[in-house]
Design a protein around this nucleic acid. Structure first.
Lengths: 338, 338
DNA sequence: CAAAATTAATCAAACGTTTGCGTTATTTTT
DNA sequence: AAAAATAACGCAAACGTTTGATTAATTTTG
């Protein structure tokens, strides 16, 4: 029952011409006469000819495929980002294959290897949390596979990347709180190993010092981003000699934990919480953060994809300029609570 | 700089043996002696040999790739499901390529075509909302590409599918509300064109009649699932002669709209809302639904992927048995609100 | 010790498509 | 009318790997 797919050879045999002519005819090559061309196309259509992609890819050494490696697809941020990537890719007739590192370095290394074996034309990567070495990406260089990092990027500039400036976002957030009158602002930061933590802290410090306040390091506490860790961080604030009246949470999950805990202690009204918007329906909460940093995952994905496609099509691999694209993040102020 | 990747041929040339021996050596074929085998493997390693996947795929006519077509990757449900699919696929050394139909029939048709051209070994599909014809999938049959539908499945049995029984889930939900003492229960259903709407309604009716109550059709209202539509539906309930005391919402978005509206009217405490759990943090809401139907997207994705891989590996294509797998959904009762 | 069996490796074809280079005819230019 | 250009197509190699059929060398067997 499973009729073998029609091939160019078969069309050639039936029409009594050579396979090369068929190929050229199908591609409107000028050296094929109009009549033959039409005959070829007609027969191809009536035989339901479909080019064998595998053969073409093999022949051309291109796969028209871009790989995406990211930590967790089920995280809202990434699902939006990859959705954008796919939308862009399909416009240019590229296919997307993806894989999750599950925030595991070894897995990430393996996946890079696999993508390379799959001979993807380019790679989009958001690095895992426990990645601190980056040699696995350098191997791609020698295979001429361009890489664009997005959102979770390595801490150096000589790569292509698209990311949000969490620093400026944090400045905006802290400024907003200062303008609201807060004078003691706590920050629940992530582990120090994360570049994103560094950015947040830098932004915080800049905003504080720019406003001629003195920076109190004990108001920035590190946290493993779990619920338990959040509670411990919260306790530090509650017992602080200059108890903060506002808190910048590392992300929405932390904000949720925090709000839950504060509500339990019935101190929720003593705090304004600002967070980073990874989650969609956070605004439906009764005691939602007063503001959120929007990181525009769709835009980031879109830009990253387009840069990658650019790189793939740029003929000279020795183009030494690196795309370092910063997507400005905005502070979204939630409607005033009545 | 971009050194051409090492090939089997090159290894063969250096070792002065034939390419076929190299291939066999690398695959531990018995007809290659131990010493030669080791020499081959060593040289391969030292030359960083990587099999050219494109060539292998072409040669074998298999791609070790499964395609996934779904409506919207950014929907939480699907992002979880595809996350599971990828996890399963990678275990069996398969790669996942995916594309979004954006709930558009024409796009879906195109994507199926594209997947076929990519010669995926199998296809996983969650159909788009406005798909009512299914010929585009039948073409895959003749190419011997198995298809497994999941969650959003066609309304007939002679295909492979994995889905949740929304009917039994709805029965559970309604029963729960009845047990809580509610005697007038409203349902905000989706458009009648959706199979999922039918299932919900059937479940509702069964639960009602099984409990010897009389079914009031005016308590089941259709809704376009927008916020405006939800409000209109809510108004119908508020003006109903037997005003319901509990409402089954079509999904969490509808539930959110509903709760928001009820809160605005300050009637939120007059209702118990039950919903279907597409969203993660719904439980953080102050006035969250009292219970949610968990549809186990990860499990669905997992099962669908495994079934597909089974089908791919089953030698006889004439295996006429269809996998019709139902994932039992559970009613998750949220913690009692203090 | 000849015949059979085993071991170790080679040959060559095949997968489907593309493409540089030839080879004819036919037409155009001098 | 000869030379040059063009049009229309065929030839064959190439991409890298796998695999059935063979061969050659060695060992086992009766």
């Amino acid at each position: 029952m499973q009729s073998k797919p029609t091939t160019i050879k078969e069309i050639a045999r039936i029409l009594n011409i050579s396979p090369s002519s068929v190929s050229r005819g199908l591609h409107d090559h000028p050296s094929i006469g109009a009549v033959t061309r039409e005959k070829i196309k007609q027969l191809a259509k009536s035989l339901n000819y479909e080019p064998n992609n595998a053969a073409i890819l093999f022949q051309k050494g291109k796969t028209y495929t871009i790989g995406v490696i990211l930590p967790e697809l089920s995280e809202h941020f990434f699902s939006i980002a990859i959705s954008a990537i796919e939308d862009e890719a399909i416009k240019k007739n590229y296919t997307v294959i993806f894989a999750q590192s599950h925030d595991n370095y070894e897995q990430e290394v393996k996946l890079v290897e696999k993508m390379k074996n799959q001979r993807v034309d380019g790679l989009l990567v958001s690095i895992s949390k426990d990645t601190s070495k980056f040699d696995h990406f350098e191997k791609l260089n020698s295979f001429n596979i361009p890489v664009v990092f997005f959102d979770r990027i390595p801490p150096f500039k000589n790569v292509h990347y698209v990311a949000c400036s969490l620093e400026s976002a944090t400045i905006k957030a802290v400024n907003y709180l200062l303008k609201k009158g807060h004078r003691s602002i706590g920050m629940i930061n992530g582990p120090n190993t994360l570049y994103a933590s560094e950015e947040r802290k830098d932004g915080y410090m800049q905003a504080i010092t720019f406003n001629r306040l003195k920076f109190d390091p004990s108001l920035v506490v590190n946290c493993d981003l779990t619920e338990q860790g959040t509670i411990e961080a919260a306790n530090q604030f509650l017992n602080h000699k200059r108890k903060p009246t506002a808190i910048v949470a590392f992300n929405d999950y932390v904000a949720l934990f925090l709000i839950k805990y504060f509500k339990k202690l019935n101190v929720i009204n003593d705090f304004d919480v600002v967070s980073y918007a990874n989650l969609p329906i956070i605004s439906y909460l009764d005691n939602s953060p007063v503001a959120s940093v929007e990181q525009y995952p769709y835009l980031q994905g879109q830009k990253a994809a387009n840069i990658l496609l650019d790189l793939i099509h740029s003929p000279n691999s020795e183009n030494q300029a690196y795309y370092n694209t910063i997507v400005e993040s905005d502070l979204i102020v939630n409607e005033v609570k009545e």
